[in-house]
């Protein structure tokens, strides 16, 4: 029997956005997926070794995951995203990701696709091109892509439904405004979500909202914002403002888009308690805990006053 191709997927950045799509696509094409583990101290250390000091923590985590995957698979998937059309850019880090990895690890075999709607590089076409590297059967690729795409849509809808149900109960609710690759990361976001779960507080995730609705709502807060990923998460603020008791901004140091967007929002939003948490690679959990505890005290007191 032919050996299966092993495809490495770093558990960072776009993994949290597209993991269902990637998993189903490659499994349909008879590939084996090698996933890097949850972010841990070792991976952070690896990432620091392979990146420039000034890069943001999220990208250091990414480099750590890529470094972990060397020699464990045939290909590593490194997508490159430039824009989703006019006025729909993404952080510039994503446009350079492929070339950074290529130059940092010259011997790494990379599988990549490039989304740049402004020059007509669309997702379906790019996946088709990528699929040709794995199999020669075009029909198989098209079927795999549509299968994966459908699965992803269904999964996202389930998440949104789940969140909508959560809104109905009477517990304290906190909205976390953070990029998915920060909030779901074991090292960056997990201590915070764990803390809230232990204290019986419901978390509303900013990215679990229909993207089109989020982008519509984001225009009310910021007119000239052109980063799609930021639009998708800040839209949640206006959407959930009535339902939540507090908002947390979670950022990895020194995130470019967040440095401007979060500051603007903190200045604009007046009627909900807000805290801004910045995580870097030497953050201590104890300090974080104290800040979160006092934040909970504030929102609890506020809620009791209202009732």
């Amino acid at each position: 029997m032919k050996k299966k191709i092993k495809i490495g997927i770093p558990r960072a950045f776009l993994y949290y956005r597209h993991h269902i799509l990637w998993k189903n696509f490659f499994e349909k094409l008879n590939c084996q997926i090698v996933l890097s583990p949850d972010t841990n101290k070792e991976i952070i250390a690896l990432g620091k070794d392979y990146s420039i000091d000034e890069s943001c923590l999220s990208s250091k985590v990414y480099m750590g995951h890529v470094a972990y995957l060397i020699d464990k698979c045939d290909y590593v998937l490194i997508p490159r995203i430039s824009d989703y059309g006019k006025d729909e850019k993404v952080c510039i880090k994503f446009s350079g990701l492929y070339d950074i990895v290529k130059n940092t690890f010259p011997n790494l075999k990379i599988l990549n696709y490039n989304i740049e709607i402004s020059t007509h590089h669309k997702e379906a076409y790019e996946f088709f091109k990528m699929g040709l590297k794995i199999t020669k059967n075009p029909i198989k690729i098209i079927r795999a892509y549509y299968h994966a795409h459908k699965k992803e849509k269904k999964y996202n809808q389930e998440l949104m439904q789940c969140q909508a149900n959560n809104l109905k109960n009477n517990k304290l609710k906190i909205l976390i405004i953070a990029h998915p690759y920060n909030i779901y990361d074991k090292y960056i976001g997990y201590p915070i979500t764990k803390f809230f779960k232990e204290n019986n507080i419901d978390i509303i995730y900013a990215d679990r909202l229909d993207k089109k609705i989020a982008i519509e709502y984001s225009k009310e807060l910021s007119e000239t914002l052109y980063w799609t990923y930021s639009k998708e998460i800040i839209g949640a603020i206006n959407y959930y403002q009535e339902a939540v008791d507090g908002i947390i901004f979670l950022t990895a140091f020194p995130c470019g888009p967040d440095s401007l967007v979060n500051e603007l929002l903190i200045r604009k939003i007046k009627n909900v308690p807000i805290t801004n948490i910045i995580i870097d690679e030497s953050s201590a959990e104890a300090g974080l805990q104290t800040r979160l505890e006092s934040f909970i005290d504030i929102i609890e007191g506020r809620k009791n006053n209202h009732e």
């Binding site: 420039i52 000034e54 890069s55 880090k93 130059n103 020194p254 470019g256």
Partner: peptide
């Protein structure tokens, strides 16, 4: 300038 994202992307490649 400190934290300039595009130039940080360029730096590892310039090292090559």
């Amino acid at each position: 300038s400190f934290g300039c994202t595009p130039e940080i992307s360029a730096m590892p490649i310039m090292a090559e």
